[in-house]
Design a protein around this nucleic acid. Structure first.
Lengths: 229, 229
DNA sequence: AGGTATCTGTGTCCGTCGGAAACAGTTTAT
DNA sequence: ATAAACTGTTTCCGACGGACACAGATACCT
């Protein structure tokens, strides 16, 4: 049973011979939708606005894409783009670069952080990203499921931090301010939070901080496995 | 300038004296909406269905709630519930319990994982959760911003893992299978992934695995700070 | 008491969304 | 030349969030 979404993502489209030449491609539509989402957010990427941008009617898009969900799936895989090449600098450096790279994608297309939540059809690009991270862990003594969990943790962290960026132009400061505004006048109720927010340092270090902690933890596990057991 | 959402979440509602007795409360509405979302997902929690469940018209809800977004905000704060009491077993055990507790909330109300993405109005319950985690880190040499980043990492991890749960009744196996299905026949393209998926062990360990790695990493940092510099 | 301001719940209406269905025009295979 | 197949458009629908005007209920004020 061929899933239309899977076919679309994995390029199993039957090429037609008869009939008028299509004026669009799925890539065109995905590109237009991504442009709209980049500019005005994912909710603004309606079929209507995407069609307008391409100079066609809304319903014309349904000749190329089965529905909105499938379009979003293609958008995600396109926005993530090609995964970085395999690297040979040791697993830690590679995973660090990998996490920075996917963080870069998340921040370049802020809507991807909300679009990639929950179970959804996975495209070839996304699967290649996963593959590349697992390759980096291949020469460690980690079990397969542990490697998968590691990558999930890293990707989750990158997405979580990128989501804070998605707020305003000056992100971390903005989220800082909004919290501070809430705590103001309630310092007795949230003393630890008030104290933490009073710390001015470490702006913009959120990604690397968590990343280095996770990598330290992995390194510890790898070291333990390599020695005793 | 009073923000209606903030007022609603933080209980600054002006109590009316004249006019008919209200038949509902904001808590009633939030409860009904949560029940619908728990049963059929967040998209099913429309004003219509929530109103039906309460035996009133859709528009009656707008007497209590400014709009859908504000209702979702109240839903989130209600579903998260009261944060666990402060604990005195050392920061590591406390953070571990904290992460398990918030993971429990995420899985009890699966829609919260998608609802708590991105910047949004924060309620008192959610802020108390944050406060409690920071309290656990209060006696460590971590800076305020580092403590905040730590909590963000832990919460992000719990949410990421809970999202996989949200898929089916047998969650991790399901996501495993869907990946395996994609890799099938493409093992040459995704060799590391094929190998990792072949590992049968470690099902259902994703939360603790990542959690322990992060905590190990934090512990290392704490140790380094406490000794040398 | 009676009037009146105020609040509640309802009914009606609108714009926008994703999508179904029928249609006309265009191109290729027979 | 004719028929099949495909494209893009038009029209239509139900569901959604929400604005607005209304009728009924309640408590304050004189």
């Amino acid at each position: 049973m061929p899933d239309p979404t899977t076919d679309l993502l994995w390029g199993a489209r039957p090429t037609a011979t008869r009939g008028p030449r299509p004026t669009l491609t799925v890539a065109d539509i995905a590109g237009a939708a991504i442009a709209v989402a980049d500019a005005d957010g994912l909710p603004a990427a309606t079929m209507q606005r995407v069609a307008e941008r391409l100079g066609v009617t809304k319903m014309a898009l349904y000749r190329y894409v089965p529905g909105k969900d499938e379009l979003v799936a293609v958008m995600i895989d396109t926005a993530l783009g090609e995964a970085p090449e395999p690297c040979a600098d040791g697993w830690r450096a590679c995973l660090r670069r990998w996490t920075h790279a996917i963080y870069d994608r998340f921040t370049t297309h802020p809507w991807t952080t909300e679009a990639t939540v929950g179970p959804r059809p996975i495209g070839p690009n996304e699967l290649t990203w996963l593959e590349r991270a697992l390759v980096a862990l291949a020469d460690t003594p980690l079990a397969g499921s542990e490697a998968l969990d590691t990558v999930a943790t890293l990707a989750g962290h990158a997405r979580a931090i990128a989501q804070q960026w998605a707020a305003a132009t000056n992100p971390e400061a903005a989220i800082h301010r909004s919290f501070a505004q809430l705590v103001e006048g309630r310092e007795d109720r949230f003393p630890a939070l008030a104290r933490a927010l009073a710390d001015p340092g470490g702006q913009g270090q959120a990604l690397d901080f968590g990343l280095d902690r996770v990598l330290d933890g992995i390194e510890l596990l790898v070291a333990n496995r390599s020695s005793g057991r």
